[in-house]
């Protein structure tokens, strides 16, 4: 009952937030973006033990795929991206919304497939080598795309602005991010309770043992990363339309910003837990906005201190620490009572 009330409150706040805090619509949308990439990162990093530093690849690729699909429906991409001010490309409403819908979904699908391909190569790497290997993929992709003239090169791509009232557009983007985030949260909640969830946990805790027990480790690793990449790709696609203009190195493949932030969110909240990434993303986003506003010039120092304090004193994050002091909140028991209903 208490739990039901808690979820009801959360749903109400999620739905009402852009109206309760009308000046912070874009901020709240960005918060949801952080939550999405944090949960998606935890799916492989926390639950499966594969710490990817290259998940930003799917964010950037999602942006590009969504934008290119949306442009390609009505126009020729090469002409569009290299046009100067003498030629104006006008999207009709249908072209805009159809392009956004197909583009964002296409971004998710493309990223899911590319995770299978990249994973097939990089999952031979373990531990820190996997982290560095995936980081390399993301950096290389950013450099490649910034030299790809057909896709706008280093200039990036400009998309049309929301065709109606801009405030309405902000609300729409908020709901798109929030909707994706809620779907991802529920998906993760379900996934971690299945046999699949148990298998990826086994891979995290002892991959050699999992292999010796006949678990199809590569298949599970690829599937998990692919699902995670789908959601990051969708989030990237939405960002492309929200930001209107983006360029490859600072916005799309922003390895040192969002690419690291998503990891810090999870470390702060607690790896390998359902709520950890969510709590971590909210606290991190607040921390980041406060320091960027009031400690300008020192914001990176403050961020560094936060990372050091988390890693040294809260190794398992906030939820990990809570698990230690309040194990009953997590349903951890040691007495010999059945895990299911008393009747069984």
């Amino acid at each position: 009952m208490k739990r039901l009330a808690f979820y009801a409150f959360l749903i109400f706040f999620t739905l009402a937030a852009p109206f309760l805090l009308p000046d912070y619509k874009t901020q709240l949308a960005t918060l949801w973006l952080m939550i999405i990439v944090a949960i998606a990162w935890d799916m492989t990093g926390g639950q499966m033990g594969y710490n990817s530093l290259g998940n930003i690849f799917f964010y950037g690729t999602g942006m590009y795929v969504a934008a290119l699909i949306a442009i390609a429906i009505p126009f020729d991409v090469g002409e569009y991206t290299n046009a100067f001010s003498d030629k104006i490309y006008k999207f009709t409403d249908t072209e805009y919304f159809l392009g956004a819908f197909v583009g964002i979904l296409g971004a998710g699908v493309f990223c899911a497939i590319s995770a299978l391909v990249i994973g097939y190569i990089t999952f031979g790497l373990r531990g820190p080598y996997f982290a560095i290997g995936t980081l390399g993929v993301a950096i290389a992709a950013g450099e490649l795309v910034s030299n790809w003239e057909w896709a706008g090169g280093g200039q990036g791509i400009s998309l049309p602005v929301f065709p109606y009232d801009l405030e309405l557009g902000k609300i729409m983007f908020y709901y798109m991010f929030a909707g994706t985030g809620v779907v991802l949260f529920l998906f993760a909640r379900w996934l971690y309770k299945t046999r699949f969830g148990a298998a990826i946990n086994a891979i995290r805790d002892d991959e050699e043992k999992a292999e010796a027990m006949g678990i199809h480790t590569l298949r599970y690793k690829l599937t998990a990363w692919s699902m995670s990449a789908f959601f990051v790709g969708v989030a990237g696609g939405i960002s492309a339309f929200q930001l209107i203009h983006f360029e490859p190195l600072e916005t799309a493949y922003q390895t040192i910003n969002l690419g690291i932030f998503m990891v810090v969110c999870v470390l702060l909240g607690g790896k390998g837990t359902l709520w950890g990434p969510v709590i971590g993303a909210i606290l991190f986003h607040l921390f980041k906005e406060v320091t960027w506003n009031y400690l300008l010039g020192w914001q990176w120092v403050a961020l560094g201190v936060l990372i050091v304090v988390t890693v040294v004193y809260f190794k398992d994050g906030i939820t990990g620490w809570l698990k230690l002091v309040r194990p009953e909140w997590f349903g951890i028991r040691v007495e010999a009572k059945s895990q299911r209903s008393p009747a069984s």
Partner: peptide, 23 residues
């Protein structure tokens, strides 16, 4: 539960929850 015979499972079957008989 992790030690269930995953080799006998299709990928789609791995998305089932653990059943009462597993427990």
């Amino acid at each position: 539960l992790i030690s269930l015979p995953h080799r006998k499972m299709k990928l789609s079957e791995s998305f089932h929850r653990h059943t009462g008989s597993d427990f």
